[in-house]
Design a protein around this nucleic acid. Sequence first.
DNA 1: GTGTATAAACACT
DNA 2: AGTGTTTATACAC
Length: 494
Amino acid sequence: MASSLRVQKDQKQPHTHTWAMGIELPSSPTTLTVSPTHIPPALGMSQHPHGLTAHTQGGSRRNAWGNQSYAELISQAIESAPEKRLTLAQIYEWMVRSVPYFKDKGDSNSSAGWKNSIRHNLSLHSKFIKVHNEATGKSSWWMLNPEGGKSGKAPRRRAASMDNSSKLAKVRSKASKKKPPLQSAPEATADSPGSQFPKWPGSPSSRSNEDSDVWNTFRPRTSSNASTISARLSPILTEQDDLHDEELLPSMVYSSASSNVPPTVTEELELIDGLNLMSPSSSVLSTQQSASSGQIQRDSSFSLRSPNAAGQTTTFGNSLFNPVEMSLQSSVSHFSGPQTLEALLTPGSPPPRDVLMTQVDPVLPQTGGRMSSRTLLLLGGQSTQSKMSSGNVRGKPAEQQAEPVGASVLPSTLPITPVSATAAQSVQLGSPPLLSSAGPAPLGLNQDRLPIDLDIDMYMENLECDMDYIINSELMDGEGLDFNFEPLPVPHCQ
DNA sequence: GTGTATAAACACT
DNA sequence: AGTGTTTATACAC
């Protein structure tokens, strides 16, 4: 079938309209606040290999709307969002509002082609990462890969699960088009598909639960870094919400921990993906509902800039986890990974420092230095830790810093019972891989279910150490948790 | 060969 | 129907 199609494609005509390329920013329709800054000229991305800088090179525009490529436009759209993340629908909206050429093409009829191209670009380029957005029920959030991803195509391999299957699937699909079940884990996507899109992320209301899932689902498109990040970034954890859903967190954790993800992250990501997928089962975390309305963060998610490669900024939502809540939660339930995660990820309100810690993660190249204690714990479960002895150890320090909130909570929470621990681990197992980055990899294999038992002892030990360490630290510090970014060389216990 | 645009097939929800 | 992913094709450099 396909073959026959090709006939008409050629038609593409670049209209050469000559717009001034101006993209007007919408003055925030609703909430969108775009920063006019970006948009202006050539995006800054001089991505054209040829060095065209966005001007009309020669006078003619590469595209009807100007010299920018879809990828660039998408990037602008995302950057313009306060939270640096947009849903597909929002991207469309941005296009219509901001790019003159698309102004009149918002209708379904006229939009099919360019929207298809937008989607295509999002999927194709590693610079864009998809973060699951449960909250709104809508489609996923699309963010810029902090790492910058290459504009080029991404090698994206999906999680292992996908991998194999995907290949096969494809093959098959072509042949027979059935879909392999594999695919996997389907991220749970939103609940209701179609609805309007949430207001947009920025808006307070919308943010609520969204985050939750977000965490979970990120797709590792190509390079994982992004994905990692994305996970954490996820947009906003806002608080409020009901969070019922919370399964997600685990991923976050890892992500934070691994955030730095060096080079091969991809693989790890993949793993993670798998994990995430798997983790749902563990949904253990229910947790909190926070009611925090109080502060709500408004959209205040703050953004961090990670020095990472691209220097792009990532935004984290702030969740508000109130300490109180945390406590409650913890006390109430077992600790759920998620909370922790959140905590880690989102420092309460936006105290910069917290953020920093977060940041640290991303940055740190080293291995795991910075994992949160929990993470460690979790990790501990994993072989990783054991193997990495030294590495692991280090983690502590970082964590301590990192876990401000979480840490405090931890102690109480931590009392992990084997069970809980297990659960937690199981949830987090996935994470290890990341951590493991240093190590060989634990990977996933086990992840599935892990032999926690096996490790548990070790795990426990590790915990103890961590805990003590943490506690001491905290005490010493006082309640305030300071986070240092420095990688403390920790002697680690044991 | 690379990057991009476009179209379309498929899959999933 | 909307969203995502992937494949294929055509073009410009």
